[in-house]
Amino acid sequence: MRFWKKVTLTLGVLLSIGVGSSITAQADSHTAFIDELSTPVLQVSRKYHLYGSVMMAQAALESDWGTSALSTQANNYFGVKGNYGGRSVTMSTSEANTSGDLYKTLAQFKSYPSIAASLNDYAKVLRGGTTWNPFLYQGAWRENADSYMSATAIVAKNYATDTNYQEKLNQIIAQYDLHDRFDRATAHATDADHTTVITPGVSYATYDGTATVKPGTIRFYKNVPGPSVKAKSIKTDQLANQKVTVLQRGIITKSQTIWYQVKTAQATGWVQLTDLLNLATK
């Protein structure tokens, strides 16, 4: 009896060590994932004025903490379908039929060159919505959502069919203190990056270049004009013939009108492509 008792106690200790090691290993891998995405999440959430905690939690959930084939092979951390710059991967996915039953099928997913590209593309989805509703996620924007939980409610309602999606996101945020780490750094209006006021229905892209402003009087806007955004314009001839630095490009999806964010010694603002000459990348 003593022998079996000793064996049982030994097995119990070994099993407890094994379980503890497994939990520790999982926690370590999750922490490593958060650390790896920390810088781009902070940069992108700041640029697009979104909750970084929600972005990080959703990346973790959608990519299974960076272990999914889609994230490891295509840097796709949010399960976004389609192609990115002509690049895509075909993978198996579960879809629901009209009765709500799941079935397996093949689908094309975007393949990104980097984690940052995936995060930026995701942010544009939250800011630009869909072609049929550019305001689909506006309730998740920092200026509209009074807490990260308000943002996860909007994301869960419109991004996923999982009825427990919001609860899962909130649990990840709470467990890993993502709110303190990613939201408080951009919690105040003075901390957020307002050099770009996001206009729904506009596709944004960074642009590192130069151009010359056309002669005459042009309209210089604080942000890309849109139906839901009041863009203040400055009618000025002071920029005429000036060489400017070009920071970003914005294309209004519906009209395909192209705008560029330019910077001078005096101000930063947006002008139409038709107001620029000698546009070139650096």
Rank of each mutant, 00 (worst) to 15 (best):
S88L: 08
H188N: 14
S94H: 14
V155Q: 02
G250T: 05
H49W: 02
G66C: 08
D146Y: 14
D101N: 11
T190W: 13
T105R: 07
Q108N: 14
M56N: 07
A160V: 07
A156H: 01
L136M: 11
R2N: 13
L178K: 00
G139T: 04
V155H: 10
K168E: 04
A116D: 14
G52C: 04
A117T: 03
L14G: 06
R2W: 12
I258Q: 09
G129D: 02
V80W: 03
T245V: 15
K5N: 10
N133F: 12
A205G: 11
T199G: 08
F109P: 04
A27N: 15
Y77T: 02
R181W: 00
A107I: 09
Q171F: 05
T8P: 00
W270I: 06
L126Q: 10
E143Y: 07
A156E: 00
R87D: 13
T93E: 09
T195H: 12
T72Y: 04
A116G: 08
T152L: 04
V54D: 01
F182L: 11
V197Q: 11
N241I: 03
L119E: 04
I258C: 01
S147A: 04
N170Y: 01
I252F: 03
I17H: 07
L102M: 09
S45W: 03
T210C: 06
D64E: 13
T199P: 09
V44C: 03
Q256K: 14
A280Q: 13
T31V: 10
Q261S: 01
D208A: 13
V246M: 08
Y176V: 02
T31L: 12
A189W: 12
G226K: 08
T90D: 12
N76V: 01
R46H: 09
T190G: 08
Y159I: 02
A57P: 01
E95S: 13
V44N: 06
G269C: 05
Q58A: 01
Q43E: 15
S114V: 06
E36T: 13
H49A: 10
R2D: 13
T253Q: 14
M1D: 12
F135A: 12
T186N: 04
I173R: 01
A211Q: 10
K110T: 03
A240K: 07
E36H: 11
L50D: 00
D162I: 11
H30K: 15
P227H: 05
I251R: 15
A151R: 03
V202Y: 08
T190E: 10
D64H: 11
S16W: 11
Q73M: 07
S233Y: 15
G86R: 05
E95A: 11
Y260I: 05
